[in-house]
Design a protein around this nucleic acid. Structure first.
Lengths: 150, 150
DNA sequence: ACAACTAGTGATAATCAATGTCAATGATTA
DNA sequence: TAATCATTGACATTGATTATCACTAGTTGT
């Protein structure tokens, strides 16, 4: 999915609810698309180098994008991160490296069985889920073993 | 595990690091043990009815308990909740009802297979995980079908 | 018992992210 | 073009958390 298509989706979602794609919203959106990773609000504010865009506008745009499901908020430890919510990745998981802080997205899901069990045992109907694994990523494991050699 | 034992564990953890179990810390701890569920900071502050305990002390005690792994912080949606971290429930999951907001703890784990797959596919060594399911709890499902009948 | 020392506390002030206000701006429609 | 309405930027405000600092309580050494 290229960024042109992404922008079209965004415009569609805005228009559907009567919102406009203003130059400020477009600017902020481009930032997020270009830096396609998990960003904090601070990251986004820092990336907005255009001094004519006020911070209220940044906050408002993020809030709007959240409400339109253009962005999605995820909480890792102390921070809230925002990621694009345009693709169908509701059921991906996250690996968080406690060494370097990197966040890796996992492509598979495999929680159906568990969700069935939750329904059988608790009568709880699952609509959505969040799964994150904390640990050490491949690179940091390798770096560790390299360091041990020297 | 009764609350006497819980308090003993807490005292041990405090003493180990040179902290004291002051009357304020004991008061706050008792509150949390007595209300054994997921509490927000606000909840805790409201539960502290003793006007001689300042809010700084509440914040400090919670921070201290977190650092000593007496409490654990969990983020659900907009709120941070605190729960006792004394038992071995690192691998329990949470069900969050989007209707009534109730948080249910799930006793089983069943993520070993997934963790193995994460290691095989990504070389990521899992140390810990968080899994939460959002959906509708049994009671709310029943209430819904009752409402539909009338 | 006494002085010296230290951790802990409460009141208050300070900070910082986030939100509200409001007049000005820009786009859209009639 | 005039009217309308969403959006914006600057600024004020809020609210949660943290920092400061003098004071207290408890501990240690003599």
């Amino acid at each position: 999915m290229d960024s042109k298509t992404e922008k079209e989706i965004v415009i569609k979602r805005l228009k559907e609810k009567g919102y406009l794609l203003t130059s400020q919203r477009e600017y902020i959106l481009n930032l997020i698309i270009k830096n396609d990773r998990h960003l904090t609000i601070k990251d986004i504010c820092n990336l907005v180098e255009d001094p004519t865009i006020g911070q209220s506008t940044v906050y408002r745009a993020i809030k709007l994008f959240l409400s339109l499901d253009i962005l999605r908020k995820i909480n890792f430890g102390e921070n809230d991160y925002y990621e694009l919510s345009l693709e169908n990745k509701h059921n991906h998981h996250h690996l968080i490296c406690s060494e370097c802080g990197k966040i890796i997205e996992v492509g598979f899901d495999y929680l159906d069985e568990l969700e069935n069990k939750v329904y059988e045992d608790y009568g709880f109907v699952v609509k959505n889920h969040t799964l994150r694994f904390c640990g050490i990523c491949k690179e940091c494991t390798m770096k560790r073993s390299d360091d041990a050699k020297t």
